[in-house]
Design a protein around this nucleic acid. Structure first.
Lengths: 144, 144
DNA sequence: ATAGAAATGATAAATATTATTGAAAAGTTT
DNA sequence: AAACTTTTCAATAATATTTATCATTTCTAT
């Protein structure tokens, strides 16, 4: 697992390779995502970025996230609710989802699935596991 | 695997149990979903229902799907794009997703994951696997 | 058949996302 | 450093998706 600093360097490197400019807004969006471990929505990322750049536009956040996804630095995830969420953890990992409150946590699974290269005509190349359940907070609330 | 008729009977039974009215619209929405194997969006379901009930309202379709999900007859799935999709297959199964065109197919996996009852404080109770790849059509198109 | 509860349809409102456009910033060449 | 080109930005408008409201209709149990 790389630290934030290394990830930011990788970001700079990738941008230069592809010919994208390294703007403060792009850095800010990526940094917010690196520091968050709860798969924020675009709106949440926007609110966070605004603390540093009050004049940033929501549309810029959308565009930046799209760009970051295109160059493979973030992933768009979509589990429930009506808004897209983003994740800066692009390494192989899975998700733990609370069915009550929607909290999403990353999880590493020891077990691996052996997925055939071909399935129903599909050429496969990756998989992800979503585990559903109740987070500790929601468990306590339910008892009350 | 139950057939459509059995599933509809189950629907009627469940509604009566819970005290939900069995309206033609509800039956139609559920039937459309039972007959479709492509995880349609709300809009697509709406268009299909309209063929039988031209005056049905989109809001009714939304509401009905919410109700059907609440009583456990359909599942809302969300993989890509900005709109929710629904699935009437509530038995344990997984999904095969084409990263190019977005096609989603159900798949049964022989392999099972042994998910611990407790993970990072979560009380787990189910999981689903998404396998990403390229469907046969998109493979052919790519070669051309 | 009727009363009461619940569901529907039409529409408005809210939320989420994308496209457009002109201006500003950064990069290049000289 | 100035002129020119290219890229990005913010603001707005436009579109798409979902939910709420409310008068009217339909369903169900009696």
């Amino acid at each position: 697992m790389q630290n934030t600093h290394e990830k930011l360097e990788l970001f700079v490197k990738k941008c230069k390779e592809i010919g994208l400019k390294i703007t403060p807004q792009r850095l800010a969006v990526y940094e917010v995502l690196l520091k968050s471990y709860n798969h924020p929505t675009v709106e949440e990322i926007y609110e966070e970025v605004k603390k540093m750049y009050p004049y940033v536009s929501l549309a810029t956040v959308y565009r930046t996230l799209e760009t970051l996804e295109k160059i493979g630095l973030v992933k768009r995830v979509c589990f429930w609710g009506n808004s897209a969420r983003y994740d800066a953890n692009t390494s192989e990992h899975h998700h733990l989802i609370c069915e009550k409150c929607g909290r999403i946590e990353d999880i590493d699974l020891e077990q691996k699935l052996a997925i055939p290269e071909n399935l129903q005509g599909f050429k496969t190349h990756s998989y992800s596991v979503n585990i559903y359940g109740l987070c500790s907070e929601c468990q306590s609330n339910q008892q009350a």
